[in-house]
């Protein structure tokens, strides 16, 4: 943040005129932070995001130092970082991480493969929507973890139980949200394509699907975050490998630092996937980049 002295002076000068009896700094701060419709460049956003993280880490560090709980039960950030290093260096944690990522990839891929055709058809055709929306909408309200006992009996403790839990937890939401994305296509786009000679198939793919793609990608980004929740639940219930399994092993020996390291890992993976999706969005949809719009 490079705020020139000049800048600060003019701000406080104006502030003094505006706020009678108020400290000029307060006025200037309010003007800077609480102004509607500002847009920030990526540098400033990165800097502020890092500040948010630093605040969180500092709070954590101070809380750990304050001695409210024994260090064994509430380790500070330094200890957790050391634990993370040890996990990767000495306890083959990478294998656990890869196992979890593989499960996410397979089951989320499967969920998208099922939900996308449903969402596209429901969003495009009112009768298919009327047929399926109440059904899928109701399934959405069933808490997926309630199926765990059933899934364990039917599918055992292997990968298929975890994939099934993720599917149940995600696929209904995904279908309904993808249908919502699909409905965003303006009727005039569809009608234009029809009067240009577009048949059902070409309108569906070259207009409805194509118009919805950015929305689909964004929805998938949101739902991927949800599927991490179900993965960890599944791995905590029954698994021999994976991040959740490691955390349950650590619990047995009261290795709180390892458990927290697992949580941090999940957070970092989530952040990485989020960044990946945003990158894809920018690559694939250059016409939606805000800086290209006037």
């Amino acid at each position: 943040m490079t705020v020139s002295l000049q800048d600060r002076l003019t701000h406080s000068a104006r502030g003094a005129q505006v706020g009678v009896g108020e400290a000029p700094v307060a006025v200037s701060l309010r003007r800077r932070w609480l102004d509607f419709g500002q847009s920030l460049d990526w540098r400033r956003r990165l800097w502020l995001g890092a500040c948010g993280w630093l605040l969180f880490l500092a709070g954590w560090y101070l809380a750990a130092q304050a001695g409210l709980a024994p260090a064994r039960l509430f380790p500070g950030p330094g200890q957790v970082l050391t634990a993370l290093h040890t996990l990767f260096a000495e306890q083959q944690f990478l294998g656990d991480v890869l196992a979890s990522v593989r499960r996410i990839a397979v089951s989320f891929g499967l969920a998208v493969a099922l939900a996308l055709p449903l969402g596209l058809l429901m969003g495009a055709f009112a009768r298919i929507d009327a047929l399926l929306n109440p059904l899928l909408g109701a399934f959405r309200y069933l808490p997926a973890p309630a199926f765990i006992p059933l899934l364990l009996m039917w599918l055992g403790t292997g990968d298929s139980h975890k994939i099934a839990l993720l599917l149940i937890g995600v696929v209904f939401f995904l279908a309904i949200m993808l249908a919502d994305d699909t409905r965003q296509v303006p009727a005039s786009f569809i009608e234009t394509a029809k009067t240009l000679g577009g048949g059902r198939r070409s309108v569906l793919w070259t207009v409805v699907f194509r118009h919805s793609l950015p929305g689909y990608l964004d929805t998938c980004r949101q739902m991927l975050a949800v599927s991490w929740t179900y993965l960890v639940i599944a791995e905590i219930v029954a698994a021999t490998d994976g991040i959740g399994a490691m955390m349950m092993r650590a619990k047995r020996f009261v290795h709180v630092d390892d458990i927290m390291a697992g949580i941090v890992t999940i957070g970092l993976l989530g952040l990485a996937f989020d960044a990946l999706f945003r990158l894809l969005y920018r690559w694939w949809f250059p016409y939606l980049r805000p800086e290209n719009h006037r």
Binding site: F189, T192, T195, G197, H211
Partner: peptide, 30 residues
């Protein structure tokens, strides 16, 4: 609807994901 009767609407209907040239070529392409 059919290709013999092309319609231009009041709202802007050029497809945002296609360039000007691709938009103009759209009917011939499909």
């Amino acid at each position: 609807p059919g290709r013999d009767r092309g319609m231009v609407f009041q709202s802007y209907t050029s497809f945002p994901w296609l360039t000007v040239r691709q938009n103009v070529a759209y009917g011939l392409t499909i």
